[in-house]
């Protein structure tokens, strides 16, 4: 099956960016880029997690978030956040076809996590033009 794939240069850019995000916040332990239709493209996990399954789930939850916003007569869902007893999972779109998901422990400051994720998404959108 042909799937969305980064060039070596883009993959290297992503891995550098992921490292910067890890360096910015100790609480972040997983960063995943996937397609809007649920395929994993690039990742950096410091714990073992199923990237393929998470990618499908992230695409579903972001699509649901966008649809729920529209049904509630709101527009442009920016993030979907899963806050749970062990931490946060923040998911946001990078342009039309990609999704960035950032997974962090409860030690994360949600505002900080927002900021780091949004900045990363903007850099990725510019680089992956």
């Amino acid at each position: 099956m042909s799937q969305y794939k980064f060039s070596e240069r883009s993959e290297a850019f992503c891995q550098d960016l992921f490292q910067n995000m890890f360096d910015t916040s100790d609480a972040i332990y997983g960063i995943l880029i996937s397609t809007v239709d649920g395929h994993d493209v690039s990742k950096s996990f410091s714990r073992d997690m199923p990237a393929a399954k998470l990618s499908a789930m992230m695409s579903a939850i972001l699509a649901l978030g966008e649809t729920i916003a529209v049904e509630a007569e709101q527009q442009q869902c920016r993030y979907v956040i899963v806050e749970n007893s062990d931490g946060y999972i923040l998911t946001l779109k990078i342009k039309d076809k990609l999704i960035l998901s950032v997974i962090a422990t409860t030690q994360a400051n949600l505002g900080m996590l927002h900021s780091v994720s949004r900045n990363a998404a903007e850099k990725l959108a510019a680089q992956l033009r």
Binding site: M1, S2, Q3, T35, V36, D37, A63, D96, K97
Partner: peptide, 10 residues
């Protein structure tokens, strides 16, 4: 209600 997104594979 739909949750359609772009297809990126085959």
């Amino acid at each position: 209600v739909k949750t359609d997104t772009h297809t990126t594979d085959d």
